[in-house]
Amino acid sequence: MRALVAGLPARARAVLALVAVLLLGAPFAVDAYVLSVLILCLYFAYTGQAWNIMMGFAGQLSLGHSLYVGIGAYAAAALFVHFDVNPWLGALAAIVLCTLAGLVIGFLAFRFGIAGVYFAILTIAFAEFTRIGFDHWNWLGASGGLFLPVKERGVTDLATLRGPPVMFYYAILALTVGALALSRLLLASRLGYYWRAIREDEEAAQALGIDTFRYKMVAVGLSAAMTSLAGVFFAFYYNNLFPEQIFSMGRSIEIILGPIIGGLGTLAGPIVGAFVLTPLADGITELMQLLGIETPGVKQVFYGVCLLVVIVFLPNGIWPAIARRLGFAPR
């Protein structure tokens, strides 16, 4: 908790306290639908933060983060379904596997000097390659999907992650707050400065004696490990996994929209972006239903136009534009 508020001016602390009260109390005040939207917001806030470490802090553009969501989800779910392994242990396995996957991709890319657009395409390639592999892996349900048994939705059983949506709400809230605290610590640390030096000018960073390969590897590994937990959450919250859905490039793009719209490389950006985009997408769906428009695609067109407007008029994201007004020091 200290990591979250230390060094902030009073006004910013007041804003944070208000947000904290709202988020903690939300499940008591809203209906099931709004709660599900809030869970989705927090889910994207969390994955956005994980991605932000790699791209926002260290400047490595990954367009394949669905890979880590997918591996994390499948690892924990498969252990649970096939061997009755406790999801918390499953989460540990997910972290290990995803960290390894991230390190392998990072090693191959950084050793061979692959950067920028090429690195981004490489991450897409690994995610797509894995998606097709999982489509044919019968032990994991192949393209037919892997399903987790649902017993009693009403009983909260934190040990096996079986329970009502409220339990999942607080779980993802805890993850998001944890990621925010970790990001803040990292940014203020030596590692955080190294990352930003690499992001701004890798050659200059290297000339100053920073082991750029090593710190880029740390960024990829950490980001992958954090993303894997989102996968575990996804598996136990939705109880079904399809390679087509979880590994697709569309998923990776969903993950990165929040931080970019919110403010790349900032602490609050991924959270702000997720809380703007997710309700926007849902709001459009509601509006379409209200207006009785059932043509497929209308919603996404509107979504695309909103995205276009934000990127044209607020290229640095929403957060930098409002941070000062809320009493947060401009980053």
Binding site: L61, L63, A120, I253, L257, I260, I261, T295, P296, G297, V298, K299, Q300, V301, Y303, G304, V305, L307, L308, I311, V312, P315
Partner: peptide
């Protein structure tokens, strides 16, 4: 930012075709 711009264009194109 170029990437997001063109992804937005792509989203619009796909879904106009769908409509």
């Amino acid at each position: 930012t170029q990437f997001i711009l063109l992804v937005a264009v792509a989203i619009i194109l796909v879904n106009v075709q769908l409509m």
